[in-house]
Computed example of a mutant assay.
Amino acid sequence: MQAFVGLTQFPQGRLRLSDVNREQGTLRIGTGGKERWVPLSPPGQDQLLMYLDHACSTRRRGQESRSGEEYLFFTETYQPLTPNSITLLFGRLRARAGLEDGQVTPWLLRETFAVQYLLTGGALVVLCEILGLKDMTVARRYQRLADAEREQEGYS
């Protein structure tokens, strides 16, 4: 999911089913008292819808969340993800892939999303909106990374 919308790990654990607009292909993100609807890429939307179909059928067969909330992402025991559970998940995935600690992090996935977005013609101002950036400093860093990759890989 992060690769498609550039979320950090903190908001992901707080997302609820009501934060997904299937018809519009958007996801409501709320951080720092600010709320925005983020458009999903077509592959991101496809992946989310497949996940929702699977998760909803699994949730019906399993137990309901003890908190009564319908979280979008949850643990095996149907509890909302916490930053710690996401860290543990990344650790298991890194081990399974044979990667060392620190090679894949939520921040790296966010950066990868931003650079790929810019490489495929996305606008810097829109990237700021999608990522919820308050100023252009970080976005300009992503632009420099995209420019360097474009130069190295021969993007046109």
Rank of each mutant, 00 (worst) to 15 (best):
L93N: 00
M50P: 07
L49D: 15
G6W: 03
V5F: 10
Y142L: 02
R61D: 13
L72R: 08
E100P: 02
T105I: 03
Q24G: 06
P106F: 08
L89H: 02
R28F: 05
R144Q: 10
Q47I: 13
S65H: 09
R141Y: 02
E76P: 13
G30A: 13
P11E: 09
Y117I: 02
C56V: 14
R94V: 04
E129N: 00
E35D: 05
S65V: 11
S41A: 11
F73N: 08
I130K: 01
G68R: 13
Q45P: 01
Y71A: 13
F90H: 06
N21T: 04
R150M: 11
R60F: 12
Q79R: 15
E111F: 01
L7N: 05
T112C: 00
G154F: 11
Y117T: 07
R92K: 11
A148N: 02
R144H: 09
Q116Y: 08
T26C: 01
V115P: 06
L118K: 09
Y78S: 10
V104W: 01
E111K: 03
V38A: 01
A3T: 03
L49M: 15
Y51I: 14
V125G: 01
L119Y: 09
S18N: 09
V5G: 03
Q63P: 14
T120I: 01
T105H: 06
D53P: 04
V38H: 05
A123V: 10
L127V: 02
E100S: 03
R92P: 09
G13N: 10
R92Y: 12
D147E: 07
F4W: 10
M136D: 04
Q47P: 11
G25D: 10
R96F: 04
V125I: 01
S67K: 12
Q2D: 05
Y117Q: 07
T31G: 12
R16S: 11
G6C: 07
L17G: 10
E100N: 00
G91E: 04
T87P: 00
M1G: 08
G13F: 09
Q152K: 07
A146G: 06
N84G: 02
E23M: 13
L109K: 06
C128R: 02
V5P: 01
G91L: 05
G32S: 09
L99G: 01
G32K: 08
K134C: 11
D19I: 11
L48K: 11
A55D: 09
E129S: 00
L133V: 07
Q2R: 05
Y142F: 06
G13D: 10
P106M: 06
